[in-house]
Protein backbone atom coordinates (compact mmCIF):
# COMPACT_ATOMS: atom_id res chain seq x y z
CA UNK A 1 0.00 0.00 0.00
CA UNK A 2 2.77 2.41 0.85
CA UNK A 3 3.99 2.55 -2.73
CA UNK A 4 0.96 4.69 -3.55
CA UNK A 5 0.68 8.33 -2.61
CA UNK A 6 -3.09 8.56 -2.71
CA UNK A 7 -5.60 5.79 -2.62
CA UNK A 8 -9.36 6.13 -2.98
CA UNK A 9 -11.43 3.01 -2.39
CA UNK A 10 -15.15 2.78 -3.14
CA UNK A 11 -15.70 6.49 -2.52
CA UNK A 12 -19.34 7.47 -2.92
CA UNK A 13 -20.62 10.96 -2.34
CA UNK A 14 -24.37 11.33 -2.27
CA UNK A 15 -26.17 14.67 -1.76
CA UNK A 16 -29.77 13.86 -0.83
CA UNK A 17 -30.89 11.63 -3.69
CA UNK A 18 -28.14 12.68 -6.09
CA UNK A 19 -25.01 10.62 -6.37
CA UNK A 20 -22.20 12.98 -7.34
CA UNK A 21 -19.38 10.46 -7.08
CA UNK A 22 -20.29 6.83 -7.43
CA UNK A 23 -18.04 4.08 -6.17
CA UNK A 24 -14.80 5.69 -7.26
CA UNK A 25 -11.56 3.82 -6.68
CA UNK A 26 -8.29 5.21 -7.87
CA UNK A 27 -4.64 5.37 -6.95
CA UNK A 28 -1.84 7.82 -7.56
CA UNK A 29 1.75 6.60 -7.41
CA UNK A 30 4.80 8.66 -6.45
CA UNK A 31 6.09 10.98 -9.15
CA UNK A 32 3.12 10.54 -11.44
CA UNK A 33 1.04 13.18 -13.11
CA UNK A 34 -2.50 11.85 -13.12
CA UNK A 35 -5.43 13.61 -14.76
CA UNK A 36 -9.11 13.29 -14.07
CA UNK A 37 -11.26 14.20 -17.03
CA UNK A 38 -14.94 14.02 -17.79
CA UNK A 39 -17.87 16.11 -19.00
CA UNK A 40 -19.27 18.90 -16.83
CA UNK A 41 -21.00 17.67 -13.70
CA UNK A 42 -19.14 14.35 -13.76
CA UNK A 43 -18.11 14.76 -10.11
CA UNK A 44 -14.47 15.68 -10.58
CA UNK A 45 -14.38 18.66 -8.26
CA UNK A 46 -16.52 16.79 -5.75
CA UNK A 47 -13.85 14.09 -5.72
CA UNK A 48 -11.25 16.79 -4.95
CA UNK A 49 -13.38 18.14 -2.16
CA UNK A 50 -13.64 14.68 -0.65
CA UNK A 51 -9.87 14.13 -0.84
CA UNK A 52 -9.14 17.48 0.82
CA UNK A 53 -11.69 16.97 3.59
CA UNK A 54 -14.13 19.68 2.54
CA UNK A 55 -16.91 17.10 2.11
CA UNK A 56 -17.26 13.93 4.14
CA UNK A 57 -17.95 11.11 1.67
CA UNK A 58 -21.10 9.07 2.19
CA UNK A 59 -19.21 5.81 1.94
CA UNK A 60 -15.66 4.73 1.25
CA UNK A 61 -12.11 5.42 2.27
CA UNK A 62 -9.23 7.71 1.31
CA UNK A 63 -5.66 7.04 2.33
CA UNK A 64 -2.53 9.11 1.89
CA UNK A 65 0.89 7.44 1.96
CA UNK A 66 -0.82 4.37 3.42
CA UNK A 67 -2.51 6.23 6.28
CA UNK A 68 -6.29 6.42 6.27
CA UNK A 69 -7.25 10.07 6.33
CA UNK A 70 -10.93 9.72 5.54
CA UNK A 71 -13.32 6.86 6.06
CA UNK A 72 -17.07 6.92 6.31
CA UNK A 73 -20.28 4.93 5.97
CA UNK A 74 -23.86 6.15 5.56
CA UNK A 75 -25.22 7.60 8.76
CA UNK A 76 -28.45 9.12 10.03
CA UNK A 77 -30.89 9.92 7.25
CA UNK A 78 -28.42 8.58 4.70
CA UNK A 79 -28.75 5.00 5.93
CA UNK A 80 -32.17 4.86 4.25
CA UNK A 81 -31.38 7.07 1.28
CA UNK A 82 -28.07 5.49 0.34
CA UNK A 83 -28.19 4.11 -3.19
CA UNK A 84 -24.53 3.22 -3.69
CA UNK A 85 -22.60 0.01 -3.30
CA UNK A 86 -20.39 -1.58 -0.65
CA UNK A 87 -22.77 -0.84 2.19
CA UNK A 88 -21.35 -2.15 5.45
CA UNK A 89 -17.80 -2.57 4.13
CA UNK A 90 -16.51 0.43 6.08
CA UNK A 91 -17.32 0.71 9.74
CA UNK A 92 -14.82 3.31 10.91
CA UNK A 93 -15.48 7.04 10.78
CA UNK A 94 -12.35 9.08 10.18
CA UNK A 95 -12.62 12.64 8.95
CA UNK A 96 -9.55 14.83 9.05
CA UNK A 97 -10.23 18.54 8.64
CA UNK A 98 -8.90 20.33 5.52
CA UNK A 99 -6.15 22.10 7.48
CA UNK A 100 -4.89 18.79 8.93
CA UNK A 101 -4.86 17.26 5.47
CA UNK A 102 -2.88 20.20 4.13
CA UNK A 103 -0.39 19.78 6.97
CA UNK A 104 0.04 16.13 6.00
CA UNK A 105 1.15 17.21 2.54
CA UNK A 106 -1.81 17.56 0.19
CA UNK A 107 -2.09 21.03 -1.31
CA UNK A 108 -4.72 22.21 -3.75
CA UNK A 109 -5.79 24.99 -6.04
CA UNK A 110 -9.36 25.93 -6.84
CA UNK A 111 -11.43 25.85 -9.99
CA UNK A 112 -12.39 29.52 -9.64
CA UNK A 113 -9.28 31.18 -8.28
CA UNK A 114 -9.45 31.76 -4.54
CA UNK A 115 -6.59 34.08 -3.73
CA UNK A 116 -6.55 36.36 -0.71
CA UNK A 117 -7.62 39.21 -2.97
CA UNK A 118 -6.80 42.28 -0.87
CA UNK A 119 -3.38 41.01 0.20
CA UNK A 120 -0.13 41.27 -1.69
CA UNK A 121 1.44 38.48 -3.69
CA UNK A 122 4.09 38.05 -1.01
CA UNK A 123 1.55 37.91 1.82
CA UNK A 124 -0.47 35.31 -0.06
CA UNK A 125 2.53 32.99 -0.05
CA UNK A 126 3.65 33.95 3.45
CA UNK A 127 0.28 32.96 4.93
CA UNK A 128 0.84 29.40 3.78
CA UNK A 129 3.93 29.29 6.01
CA UNK A 130 1.88 30.09 9.11
CA UNK A 131 0.78 26.51 9.72
CA UNK A 132 4.29 25.38 10.63
CA UNK A 133 4.92 28.22 13.07
CA UNK A 134 6.34 27.10 16.35
CA UNK A 135 5.95 30.41 18.13
CA UNK A 136 2.77 30.99 20.11
CA UNK A 137 0.60 34.07 20.04
CA UNK A 138 2.53 35.77 22.82
CA UNK A 139 6.01 35.42 21.39
CA UNK A 140 4.78 36.26 17.90
CA UNK A 141 3.16 39.44 19.22
CA UNK A 142 6.26 40.51 21.12
CA UNK A 143 8.40 39.64 18.09
CA UNK A 144 10.44 37.10 20.06
CA UNK A 145 10.34 34.72 17.10
CA UNK A 146 12.43 37.04 15.01
CA UNK A 147 14.48 34.28 13.38
CA UNK A 148 11.49 32.18 12.55
CA UNK A 149 9.70 35.10 10.95
CA UNK A 150 12.81 35.88 8.94
CA UNK A 151 13.05 32.28 7.82
CA UNK A 152 9.39 32.25 6.75
CA UNK A 153 9.90 35.40 4.73
CA UNK A 154 13.05 34.06 3.16
CA UNK A 155 11.43 30.77 2.13
CA UNK A 156 8.46 32.63 0.64
CA UNK A 157 10.76 34.92 -1.28
CA UNK A 158 12.77 31.99 -2.63
CA UNK A 159 9.59 30.30 -3.78
CA UNK A 160 8.42 33.45 -5.56
CA UNK A 161 11.78 33.68 -7.27
CA UNK A 162 11.68 30.07 -8.45
CA UNK A 163 8.18 30.57 -9.81
CA UNK A 164 9.02 33.87 -11.54
CA UNK A 165 6.69 35.97 -9.42
CA UNK A 166 9.34 37.89 -7.47
CA UNK A 167 8.94 41.08 -9.51
CA UNK A 168 5.26 41.33 -8.56
CA UNK A 169 5.74 40.59 -4.89
CA UNK A 170 4.27 43.85 -3.56
CA UNK A 171 1.30 43.96 -5.90
CA UNK A 172 -2.19 43.32 -4.65
CA UNK A 173 -2.95 39.80 -5.81
CA UNK A 174 -6.26 40.63 -7.47
CA UNK A 175 -4.53 43.16 -9.71
CA UNK A 176 -2.37 40.50 -11.38
CA UNK A 177 -3.25 39.30 -14.88
CA UNK A 178 -5.26 36.11 -14.97
CA UNK A 179 -2.43 33.76 -15.90
CA UNK A 180 -0.26 35.06 -13.08
CA UNK A 181 -3.11 34.72 -10.59
CA UNK A 182 -3.32 31.05 -11.51
CA UNK A 183 0.42 30.72 -11.09
CA UNK A 184 0.30 32.52 -7.75
CA UNK A 185 -2.35 30.12 -6.57
CA UNK A 186 -0.03 27.25 -7.42
CA UNK A 187 2.86 29.05 -5.69
CA UNK A 188 0.74 29.47 -2.58
CA UNK A 189 -0.12 25.80 -2.61
CA UNK A 190 3.59 24.96 -3.03
CA UNK A 191 4.41 27.06 0.03
CA UNK A 192 2.74 24.43 2.22
CA UNK A 193 5.50 21.96 1.18
CA UNK A 194 3.16 19.34 -0.29
CA UNK A 195 4.11 15.93 -1.59
CA UNK A 196 0.87 15.76 -3.57
CA UNK A 197 -0.50 18.71 -5.50
CA UNK A 198 -4.13 18.80 -6.59
CA UNK A 199 -4.81 21.19 -9.47
CA UNK A 200 -8.44 21.96 -10.28
CA UNK A 201 -8.61 23.11 -13.91
CA UNK A 202 -5.32 25.00 -13.91
CA UNK A 203 -5.69 25.97 -17.58
CA UNK A 204 -9.29 27.16 -17.39
CA UNK A 205 -9.70 30.43 -19.27
CA UNK A 206 -6.15 30.43 -20.60
CA UNK A 207 -5.18 31.06 -24.20
CA UNK A 208 -3.05 28.51 -26.09
CA UNK A 209 0.17 30.37 -25.30
CA UNK A 210 -0.58 30.49 -21.59
CA UNK A 211 -1.58 26.84 -21.69
CA UNK A 212 1.77 25.92 -23.22
CA UNK A 213 3.57 27.89 -20.53
CA UNK A 214 1.53 26.11 -17.90
CA UNK A 215 2.48 22.71 -19.30
CA UNK A 216 6.15 23.56 -18.96
CA UNK A 217 5.51 25.08 -15.56
CA UNK A 218 3.87 21.94 -14.18
CA UNK A 219 6.69 19.80 -15.51
CA UNK A 220 9.23 22.07 -13.86
CA UNK A 221 7.38 21.98 -10.56
CA UNK A 222 7.27 18.22 -10.63
CA UNK A 223 10.99 17.92 -11.28
CA UNK A 224 12.16 20.60 -8.87
CA UNK A 225 9.99 19.66 -5.91
CA UNK A 226 9.69 15.89 -6.50
CA UNK A 227 5.95 16.27 -6.63
CA UNK A 228 3.12 14.00 -7.44
CA UNK A 229 0.35 15.79 -9.30
CA UNK A 230 -3.33 15.00 -9.60
CA UNK A 231 -5.26 17.37 -11.79
CA UNK A 232 -8.65 18.03 -13.26
CA UNK A 233 -8.46 19.49 -16.74
CA UNK A 234 -10.55 20.07 -19.82
CA UNK A 235 -7.82 21.09 -22.25
CA UNK A 236 -7.22 17.77 -23.99
CA UNK A 237 -3.92 18.88 -25.52
CA UNK A 238 -2.54 19.64 -22.10
CA UNK A 239 -3.92 16.46 -20.57
CA UNK A 240 -2.63 14.17 -23.31
CA UNK A 241 0.78 15.80 -23.31
CA UNK A 242 1.42 15.93 -19.62
CA UNK A 243 -0.25 13.04 -17.86
CA UNK A 244 1.08 9.57 -17.19
CA UNK A 245 -2.37 8.15 -16.57
CA UNK A 246 -5.91 9.38 -16.96
CA UNK A 247 -9.12 8.60 -15.11
CA UNK A 248 -12.35 9.37 -16.93
CA UNK A 249 -15.51 10.09 -14.96
CA UNK A 250 -19.03 10.36 -16.29
CA UNK A 251 -22.08 10.91 -14.08
CA UNK A 252 -19.92 10.22 -11.04
CA UNK A 253 -18.80 6.82 -12.28
CA UNK A 254 -15.36 5.79 -13.45
CA UNK A 255 -15.78 4.79 -17.08
CA UNK A 256 -12.19 4.34 -18.16
CA UNK A 257 -8.63 4.49 -16.96
CA UNK A 258 -5.30 4.19 -18.71
CA UNK A 259 -2.49 5.99 -20.50
CA UNK A 260 -3.31 8.90 -22.81
CA UNK A 261 -2.99 6.61 -25.82
CA UNK A 262 -5.43 4.07 -24.42
CA UNK A 263 -7.95 6.73 -23.42
CA UNK A 264 -7.98 8.36 -26.85
CA UNK A 265 -9.10 5.10 -28.42
CA UNK A 266 -11.54 4.03 -25.71
CA UNK A 267 -15.10 3.68 -27.05
CA UNK A 268 -16.74 4.51 -23.67
CA UNK A 269 -14.84 7.78 -23.49
CA UNK A 270 -15.72 8.74 -27.06
CA UNK A 271 -19.37 7.98 -26.30
CA UNK A 272 -19.34 10.03 -23.12
CA UNK A 273 -17.86 13.05 -24.86
CA UNK A 274 -19.61 12.85 -28.22
CA UNK A 275 -22.85 11.17 -27.17
CA UNK A 276 -24.40 7.97 -28.52
CA UNK A 277 -27.16 7.68 -31.12
CA UNK A 278 -30.56 6.40 -30.05
CA UNK A 279 -29.87 3.05 -31.68
CA UNK A 280 -26.38 2.78 -30.29
CA UNK A 281 -24.22 3.85 -33.23
Amino acid sequence: MSDTVLNLTDVTMQFGGVIAVNNLSMEVRPGEIVAIIGPNGAGKTTAFNVITGVYAPTNGEVSFHGETIISNHPQGKMTKLYAGEHLGKYDKVIQKTPDRITKMGIARTFQNIRLFKDLTVFENVLIAKHMNMRAGLFSATCMLNHNEEKEMRQQSMELLEILDLADTKDEISSSLPYGKQRRLEIARAMATNPSLLLLDEPAAGMNPQETNDLTAFIHRLKEEFHLTVLMIEHHMNLVMEISDRIYVLDFGKLIATGTPGEIQNNQHVIDAYLGVDEDGH
Partner: peptide, 19 residues
Amino acid sequence: RAFKAIREDETAAEAMGIN
Protein backbone atom coordinates in the same frame (compact mmCIF):
# COMPACT_ATOMS: atom_id res chain seq x y z
CA ARG B 1 -1.91 37.46 8.64
CA ALA B 2 -3.80 34.25 9.35
CA PHE B 3 -6.77 36.31 10.58
CA LYS B 4 -6.72 38.33 7.37
CA ALA B 5 -6.60 35.13 5.35
CA ILE B 6 -9.75 33.95 7.11
CA ARG B 7 -11.43 37.28 6.34
CA GLU B 8 -10.51 37.03 2.68
CA ASP B 9 -11.54 33.45 2.04
CA GLU B 10 -12.29 30.81 4.66
CA THR B 11 -12.10 27.88 2.28
CA ALA B 12 -8.75 28.97 0.90
CA ALA B 13 -7.41 29.74 4.38
CA GLU B 14 -8.30 26.24 5.52
CA ALA B 15 -6.68 24.79 2.42
CA MET B 16 -3.51 26.68 3.45
CA GLY B 17 -3.42 24.71 6.69
CA ILE B 18 -4.99 27.36 8.93
CA ASN B 19 -7.11 25.81 11.62
